[in-house]
Simulated assay, not measured.
Amino acid sequence: MTVSDQFIEENPGCWIFNNQKPVQPVSGLAFGSRVIGGAGVRLWEILPGSWFQRVQNPHNFWRAWLIDACLGHADNRQVVFQEWKVGSLKPCFIDHGFLFGGADGTHRPKAARSRYLDPRVYGNAPVPQLSKYAKTIHEVFPEILRSLVQDVPAQWKTTSAIASFERYVERLSEPGLCEGVLDEILQAYSHVSNPEAIESRSIFAPAFAGLQVRMPATQL
């Protein structure tokens, strides 16, 4: 869609927040994503602990973490939970603006950075399935990502953006990269949960110094 300067000035809710500072978007061609939910649909951003057992396919949180970590997501994973069926919550993974090294492409985030803030949603790590998924990311994702980026408008393909994108796509092709990132997120998770909840696995990556799990009051 085409967005005017007047619309941007009159609707500060569409501004981008980079390190808690508002950044005014540029007018012109903009990406419009589908709204989650609808009339009569209930959504949650933060869940009480007893509700996590109602989340559909919680293993997708592990898969999202692995993808985020491989592609340099420099922000915590954002999720909105939608009431899908009676007693069931469907997670919708949103806000991917800090992939490929953050808004300016210069960040080098550790794997722990892109974890969903409440670790209780993860449960036991499905290590065999994640190992297969890491192989899939290594073998399939580079081609898929390069195919998808062809549909991005030319005016969005700045030199710095393409360089950041290519840097992380090339990383996916490195032998053992995705497997090493998987080891890192398992190691990171062990710092914020009961270590016995993690299935036995050799850890090749160095241990993380620690995790920052605080949420700023403004986000609450």
Rank of each mutant, 00 (worst) to 15 (best):
Q82T: 07
A111Y: 02
F204A: 11
Q78L: 11
A188I: 05
D95Q: 01
I8V: 10
S33A: 11
P142C: 02
Q219M: 15
L186R: 01
V86N: 12
G13K: 10
E9M: 13
R167N: 08
L89T: 02
D5I: 00
C70S: 08
G40R: 04
P109M: 01
P119S: 06
A134I: 01
F100N: 03
F7R: 05
C70M: 08
V3D: 07
W62Y: 09
G38K: 02
V41K: 14
K157V: 02
A69M: 09
R167H: 15
F100V: 02
S131C: 08
G105N: 05
V23C: 15
K90Y: 10
A112S: 10
I162T: 06
Y133W: 08
G210D: 07
F98V: 01
E9G: 13
Y189D: 04
C92D: 08
F204S: 14
A74H: 02
V80W: 04
F61M: 01
V192L: 06
T2Q: 15
K90R: 13
A188C: 13
Y133A: 01
L182P: 01
L211G: 04
N124V: 14
L211T: 04
K21P: 03
S4H: 08
P216M: 06
I8T: 04
F52Q: 07
F17H: 09
F100S: 00
P216L: 11
W65V: 00
L172F: 06
S173Y: 05
I8A: 09
K110N: 13
C14H: 11
Y168F: 14
G180Q: 09
F81M: 11
A112T: 05
A188P: 04
L99M: 08
N124F: 07
F98Q: 07
Q129K: 06
Q187K: 04
G105I: 00
F17K: 05
G210L: 02
R42V: 07
K135S: 14
P119Y: 02
S50K: 10
S131Q: 12
S190T: 07
I162E: 10
L99C: 06
A39S: 11
I8H: 12
Q129S: 14
G37I: 01
V3F: 13
H107Y: 11
L220K: 08
F208A: 12
E143I: 05
L66T: 02
T158A: 07
I36M: 05
G38A: 03
A197W: 04
Q129N: 10
Q219Y: 11
I144V: 12
P128F: 01
W44S: 15
V26S: 15
C70E: 06
Q155S: 09
E139H: 07
F61C: 00
F17Q: 11
G210R: 01
D151S: 06
L47I: 10
F141V: 10
G105D: 04
L99T: 03
N124L: 15
Y116V: 08
C14M: 12
G176C: 05
V192Y: 00
E174V: 11
W62A: 03
K132I: 05
L130Q: 04
G87P: 09
K135E: 14
F98M: 13
W51M: 13
Q82C: 11
A161K: 09
L47K: 01
F98G: 01
